[in-house]
Design a binder for these strands. Structure first.
Lengths: 185, 185
DNA sequence: GGATACATGTAAGATGTTACATGATTGT
DNA sequence: ACAATCATGTAACATCTTACATGTATCC
């Protein structure tokens, strides 16, 4: 079996959380529910099947459920840590930046524990470059097309432009922050 | 039948585009593919079934396919325009702001042709209020929890904060722009 | 005449949503 | 004893992705 099919973003999100510390399924659901950054739903119909898929891949191990049906602790395995690392090291493609920027941020959030600082800085450089290039495309598109749009259509597009500008600026700042903490550990 | 179940975001996106002018299925796919703001995929397996669902709801009509299998024009119906209007007038809930902000922007983009300016201004006021309140929640969460996170985890969260700030600022600006165009039409 | 873009469709499979079901523990 | 929360699960359903299939018009 060549590198078995990629997992879903939800599965990697669970894996990344389990890389920080063991959790029960319910605990993970609570994290999604009570954490105000909610890209994922806390629905049991999504979480529990995803956890079982991770167990089937041997990326996480499940402690035996003690008692009648009490909480079950999941913890990441060595294979799981390797799979997470491989996902985190994936290149930043132009397609990622347009169609799944949230997944890129999720990956960045998990890098701290898992990757050496040099790789993280490399990710940020690529991220900034790709995002800046996408911003240019958007600006060109705006220049060429905006006169054909309605007022709200134009404003909505400019909303997208503003977000991209914020993202580029964030990447610069984040890189600077990483440099600073490198100097004085 | 009470207000038949809500349609998917993709269906409303297609409906909104058809509200601007008639398109063929392929034309709609091209819009998704060549427009640099890509929340939707251009895959035929998504677009064509969605169009047929819209036809089944009688929200759009399909011109008879001329010739062997040539292009087929879809156009919005009166019922479709009503359904689009109802979707656009939906209140801005706190849940929308956290879990589906893109759909809110999509709605705003389509409002120009479909709603009176007063309703659009009302949407923007609600949007700004909800987004600002969500931003406060995030800031509080950051203040309480950020010391427990990794460096990249904190930076990723601050990315989310920056986006929310940009969104609030955008809403203020957009409201001002709408006021100005009201004064001098 | 062949390549490319145009144009529409289907089938298999995986994932996620919604709603329901079940039982244990804790607090009062 | 009762309610609320903890904790896990399943079943039905709709949607989307990916890959394949098919045929037309146009350009060189």
């Amino acid at each position: 079996m060549r590198s078995a099919k990629r997992a879903t973003t939800l599965e990697y999100a669970l894996l990344g959380l389990l890389d920080q510390e063991p959790h029960s399924g319910y605990g993970l659901r609570r994290l999604f529910a009570h954490t105000p950054l909610g890209y994922f739903s806390d629905s049991p119909g999504a979480i529990y099947p995803a956890l079982r898929r991770l167990v089937a891949r041997r990326w996480v191990g499940a402690g035996a459920p003690q008692g009648g049906r009490r909480r079950q602790e999941y913890r990441i395995s060595a294979r799981g840590r390797a799979a997470l690392g491989a996902w985190l090291r994936l290149p930043v493609t132009a397609a990622d930046v347009v169609s799944d920027p949230d997944a890129l941020m999720l990956r960045f959030a998990f890098m701290g524990q898992a990757l050496p600082a040099a790789v993280i800085r490399g990710f940020l450089r690529e991220y900034e470059r790709r995002m800046a290039s996408q911003l240019e495309d958007l600006r060109r598109h705006h220049g060429e097309q905006s006169h054909t749009w309605s007022l709200t259509g134009r404003l909505a597009f400019e909303h997208g432009l503003a977000l991209h500008e914020t993202k580029v600026a964030w990447a610069r700042n984040a890189a600077r922050t990483l440099e600073k903490t490198k100097e004085k550990p």
